[in-house]
């Protein structure tokens, strides 16, 4: 059941008057213009243990996302596709308003909006994550961890999710008697990505639309619009979130502004994540060539595997099937 939130922010309400006066002059409380995005910083592969990860700072908002993988049976209706799972945690250290416990409706909504925005436009090439159709496919978990909440969690989380996927590598799948085992010590290829998607969030405050709202701005805002925009300028998802309403023409201008402003986030991904992706792709290519020159691929026990149950390695690494397919794709 969804209940009107009891949290009544008093201080931002007092600031509302100041904010409105400033907005009418085209300035915001932090000095930004109405359509100005805060400083973006993306650190790819922040967590080395994860298959892919990224730390995103959007002003004072900090979000960390990690990609983990395993091998599962596909969904019956999509036997030729891998599985993508997006999950968000609003951890209590990120804000005085967050509490420990299972994800609340805000975290669920955020995860689902990001999931849809990635899924509908096929941002991840799930069809290239199949080991055996209908039997064994890769499952990608994108876990979003909000570390500091200063507004606009959607855009920061979407950037973190996208950046973590772009910096993710698939581990070696080892064929066993009854399926596959993941050898996390070694990697075969980067996670295949078709499209890059970002979201642009606008808040409506006193009839004005502002891009990339801070926490204070969100507290006094009437409502927010989250618009997902792909790297080819299409709209990949929309969510109106928060109480309050938008006039019909405000909806249209919000989407127009979002489509326009998305390039800032896309540029951040291009500048701060794509070079890293190119680098790991190059590394994987050289490693592979060395292995090919060495002839027989030997199974090296991967480091850091204290929690794993001993697995009988019945067969050799099924890299050939994998990398063979890959070659044709590249």
């Amino acid at each position: 059941m969804s209940i009107t939130p009891p949290f009544q922010p008093v201080v931002p309400k007092l600031k509302r008057y100041t904010m409105e006066t400033l907005l009418s002059r085209g300035v915001r409380l932090d000095g930004r213009k109405l359509d100005e995005v805060r400083k973006i910083e993306i650190v790819p592969s922040y967590i080395e243990r994860a298959e892919g990860s990224a730390l995103v700072r959007l002003g004072q908002t900090v979000v960390l996302a990690g990609v983990k993988t395993d091998i599962v049976a596909p969904f019956p209706d999509t036997p030729n596709e891998g599985v993508l799972v997006v999950h968000a945690e609003f951890v209590p250290l990120a804000s005085p308003t967050f509490e420990p416990g299972p994800p609340d409706e805000n975290a669920i909504e955020l995860a689902r909006v990001i999931d849809r925005s990635l899924r509908e436009i096929k941002a991840v090439a799930l069809d290239q994550l199949v080991l055996e159709p209908g039997k064994h496919v890769w499952r990608l978990f994108v876990d979003i961890y909000v570390l500091n909440h200063d507004g606009n969690l959607f855009d920061a989380s979407m950037l973190a999710a996208m950046a973590s996927l772009l910096s993710a590598r698939l581990p070696v799948a080892v064929k066993t008697e009854d399926g596959y085992r993941v050898d996390r010590g070694r990697f075969t290829r980067v996670v295949p990505v078709n499209r890059r998607v970002v979201t642009v969030t606008l808040a409506k405050i006193a009839g004005k639309l502002v891009v990339d709202p801070t926490y204070e701005e969100e507290q006094v805002a009437d409502t927010r619009m989250v618009v997902a925009v792909s790297d080819d300028g299409r709209i990949a998802g929309i969510q109106k979130t928060g109480m309050g309403d938008l006039e019909y023409r405000e909806v249209l201008s919000a989407v127009a502004i979002a489509v326009n402003k998305a390039s800032i986030y896309h540029k951040a991904l291009e500048d701060m994540v794509l070079p890293y992706r190119a680098k790991i792709e190059e590394e994987l290519r050289t490693e592979k060539t060395e292995e090919a020159v060495g002839g027989v691929v030997e199974l090296q026990p991967a480091p850091h595997r204290e929690h794993e149950e001993p697995v009988e390695i019945a067969e050799v690494v099924d890299e050939e099937g994998q990398s063979g397919e890959e070659g044709s794709r590249e």
């Binding site: 299409r234 929309i238 309403d245």
Partner: peptide
């Protein structure tokens, strides 16, 4: 004339979105 709920699941070009609204 106010929009109270709006979600888009899927992909639309910008002009298609305007027509859809």
């Amino acid at each position: 004339g106010r929009v109270l709920l709006l979600q888009l699941n899927g992909v639309l070009a910008h002009d298609e979105f305007v027509q859809a609204m």
